[in-house]
Amino acid sequence: MLDLVAQSILSGIGVGCIYGLIGIGFCVIYNASGIVNFAQGAFVMMGGMVTYTAFARYGLPLPLAAALAIVLVAFAGVVLERLVVRPLWNRGSTMFVMILATLAAQIVIERLALLAAGDQPRTLPVFTDRPPLRILGLAVNFQFLWIVACSLLVIVLLALFFSSTKTGKAMRACSINRDAAALQGIPVSRMLALAFALSAALGAFAGILITPTQYTAFNVGVPFAISGFIAAIVGGFGRPLGAFTGGILLGVAQALAIVFLGSAFKNVAALSILLLFLFVRPTGLLGPAK
């Protein structure tokens, strides 16, 4: 029993990393604009689907297919910002309208994926096809290691980007005080487009990492977006590190719920955590960003 619990905690951490990456995607856009981008899940779905198409249909090597998918999805993020968000932004629409528009975009992208790729679930091969390692009696498969290592790498790179590059600092400045940032000559709207690109790339990356252990299909976006959204709230909305921690907490809670209560309780656990935090600690683990 103990083994089973430890094993599910391990797999919960793996899925939690994915939720965390998606949650960070929410934070990046929220910090840059105040918008909660509900099309975040679409990026996750597109990451997996585009990689599958490039890999299985067009025979590209997996790393190349993945890189291509990340670039294309980042571009899709910019298109979303230009086509859906920017016109509303320039018209001075309320936040509520822009958030609803991203939800509409999510539905449109999902349906387009259905038309373009069909309703069959797709999967990708694991990145390293070897039997799991045995560590302290636990089976640690290589995809888990890929997920954890890549997630940590992404977080370190993001932290470096925001703390050490001029563009990263400018993005932080925009999130602190948009008018003051513009007064320094920072092109605020270009930073917003960049935030969408970055966030989309993060989503796509998460989608690619998780696909070999699960599957991808036109409709996987929404559940992932909900999990990422909960991760971001649990962490304190707008706090990337908080979102990542929240993601892992959520992944582990779900895994334990499945062991002790049955798989039907997976979403119950997720939403219970959300409610628990909203009631007891609405500012999240790290407190709000603003």
Binding site: R172, A173, I176, N177, D179, A180, A181
Partner: peptide, 9 residues
């Protein structure tokens, strides 16, 4: 007005 400095930075 209010200086507009980036306080957390």
């Amino acid at each position: 007005e209010g200086r507009g400095i980036f306080a957390p930075m």
